[in-house]
Design a protein around this nucleic acid. Structure first.
Length: 570
DNA sequence: CTTGGTCTCCTCC
DNA sequence: TGGAGGAGA
């Protein structure tokens, strides 16, 4: 059976000790995987803070095909097809995928599962089936069958509300027509149990793209609406464009949140909020130091009432006034930013009303921002623990009354979110070279012999990698390999090729054994045993390989060598 | 393979 | 035009 929600667990088991999830570990792992994949120079899309998806076009690589046509790697499986049907370019995609998996395994000790197909959507639907640690590909001959066999509820965009609604409507229509539903055999036996409840949930969950595809366009539109019908048709056709891959820049917002069973105790609520404020401030200060940027808005959101899953309950959010010291700490000169604006009563009122960071009103752009530095004995450093602590308190002092003043009689608070918004300018455009590559990959090319348009033989490969962390002592990251283009890779081998057997990072001493991946500490059943883990210093610190300086994980952007270390020794 | 936490995007007002 | 809130990844 699957796990139960934390709220449910708390209700059933008063006094349950729940350890906080170690989100920072996930972030680090996500970033590390991203870094490894970036080494190939192909566009990599980050789809969640800890999941990266990678779309690679393999086209026009005859040299590579010729060199490496000795079959598929061991880890690859074919979806209901045979090896003869695998075209050379798909095979190249699989080999590339294997290289990437190898790099991730060797450098990070994480596993990755990959789906390979000609269309992005098919590759994407395929990758979860490749779990826990493999490659699954679908041949061109089977691609349509594969897409038609997908449960609608598993399509992107159909996994929650929309899917439920669409499938319910579809099921009603199909059964009223007495239509043969693809999955009839599976469901019928279950449905028999519930005499007349053939419209009940189970059948709905298992409706496939093929079931929808039986209907004419007009009927489908009338049943589920234009937008949904179009999405379904596109999915059935395996349509989507690789040019859609979005290489996202820095996150636009940073947020921290916590969920809990309905809470009424104001003191406890305030305590939760303080903890969240502290964790956000820590991250903001780090962000200011690492990337020279400061957010423009602070936001406080909360949910009241129980909701079973991701959404539901009543969520409210509102802006927070900027705590002056926090604002200035995140900006260039401790004094200038806020002070230049504050004397002007009108300006201050306006910025309060608009909840803008005051300096922005003065036209200071993010490029001007420098991290606030606190000078300690050892020279400039990121803000100290003491500073972070007092800045957190300042934020809490703003946030707590702001929240409490809005809460009605029994708050029944189930969720708190504190976030910082960096404005709209944060995302980065796809770099020119990547763009060129994409265009080249997606358009058909001239065949070398004749002047005729050659068939577009590009393959799409989607990697979906969600690192699950466990009791590994920290996530080692090898020094970033030199960036190489796909072209280079195809002719000379992947970035891992030249590194041969050399292993870097902590796992080297463990014989390169992949770290066991722990499902975060929120897993109720394991939370108690995790207690010793959480308190071990290893989880919260790491040491620089050069100078062996011991760091808090919070400031770990470079895991092998610390950013302060200028020691040239290897 | 879940959940919970995080982040983005879309829609409506 | 932009903020609130819902939905999805």
């Amino acid at each position: 059976m699957g796990s139960i929600s934390l709220a449910e667990a708390n209700a059933k088991c008063p006094g349950l000790i729940v350890l906080p999830m170690r989100v920072e570990r996930y972030r680090q792992a996500g970033a590390a995987v991203l870094e490894v994949l970036n080494a190939w120079g192909a566009p990599v899309e980050k789809t969640s803070y800890d999941v990266v998806r990678n779309a690679v076009h393999v086209g026009d690589a005859e040299g590579f095909f010729a060199q490496h046509s000795q079959g598929l790697p061991m880890s690859a499986r074919i979806w209901q097809g045979c090896e003869e049907d695998v075209s050379p370019d798909l095979e190249a995609g699989v080999r590339l995928a294997e290289e990437m998996r190898r790099a991730i395994r060797c450098k990070l000790g994480l596993t990755a599962s990959v789906g390979v197909a000609r269309s992005k959507i098919a590759a994407r639907m395929m990758s979860p089936l490749a779990k826990p640690d493999g490659i699954l590909l679908v041949t061109d001959t089977e691609a349509d069958a594969f897409m038609l066999s997908r449960p609608i509820r598993s399509l992107p965009g159909f996994q929650q509300q929309r899917g439920k609604e669409v499938c319910t409507k579809l099921a009603r229509l199909l059964s009223s027509r007495g239509a043969a539903i693809n999955l009839a055999s599976d469901v019928a036996s279950h449905a028999d149990d519930h005499v007349a409840s053939h419209l009940e949930a189970p059948s709905v969950d298992v409706l496939t793209v093929g079931d929808a595809a039986q209907l004419s366009a007009a009927v489908l539109v009338r049943c589920v609406g234009e937008d949904n019908a179009a999405r379904l048709r596109r999915a059935a056709a395996g349509e989507d464009s690789v040019a859609d891959v979005r290489v996202r820049g820095l996150p636009r917002t940073l947020s921290t949140e916590a969920s809990f069973p309905p809470m009424d105790d104001l003191a406890a609520i305030a305590e939760q909020l303080r903890a969240l404020a502290s964790s956000l401030v820590k991250r903001l200060v780090a962000e200011s130091a690492a990337r020279q940027r400061a957010p423009v808005r602070l936001l406080l959101s909360y949910r009241r009432g129980y909701a079973s899953s991701t959404s539901g309950g009543v969520v409210r959010s509102h802006g927070l006034a900027w705590p002056p010291r926090l604002a200035t700490a995140l900006l260039r000169h401790e004094a200038s930013a806020f002070a230049t604006v504050a004397p002007d009563a009108q300006g201050a009122a306006q910025s309060e009303r608009r909840n803008r960071i005051p300096a922005r009103e003065e036209g200071i752009v993010s490029a001007d921002l420098k991290p606030a530095e606190v000078h300690g004995r050892d020279g400039p450093r990121a803000a100290s623990a003491v500073d972070i602590c007092s800045l957190s308190e300042e934020l809490a002092a703003v946030a707590v009354p702001s929240l409490l003043s809005r809460l009605a009689a029994p708050p029944q608070l189930t969720r708190l979110i504190v976030s910082a918004d960096f404005g709209t300018a944060a995302s980065q455009p796809v770099s020119a070279s990547i763009k060129d590559f994409l265009v080249e990959g997606t358009t058909s090319h001239r065949s070398p012999s004749g002047g005729q348009e050659a068939e577009d033989k590009s393959a799409v490969l989607t990697t979906s990698i969600q690192p699950k962390l466990t009791r590994s002592p920290g996530i080692p990251v090898a020094p970033a390999p030199k960036k190489r283009s796909i072209r280079e890779f195809l002719s000379k081998g992947g970035p891992g090729a030249e590194q041969g057997t050399k292993k870097t990072g902590r796992y080297a001493s463990q014989g390169g054994k992949p770290a066991s991946l722990d499902s975060a500490s929120l897993r109720v059943r394991s939370s108690v045993q995790d207690a010793d883990l959480a308190s071990s210093t290893d989880d919260y610190s790491w040491s620089c390989e050069r100078c062996t300086y011991l760091h808090d994980t919070a400031d770990a952007r470079h895991f092998l060598v610390c950013s302060m270390c200028s020691c040239p020794r290897r």
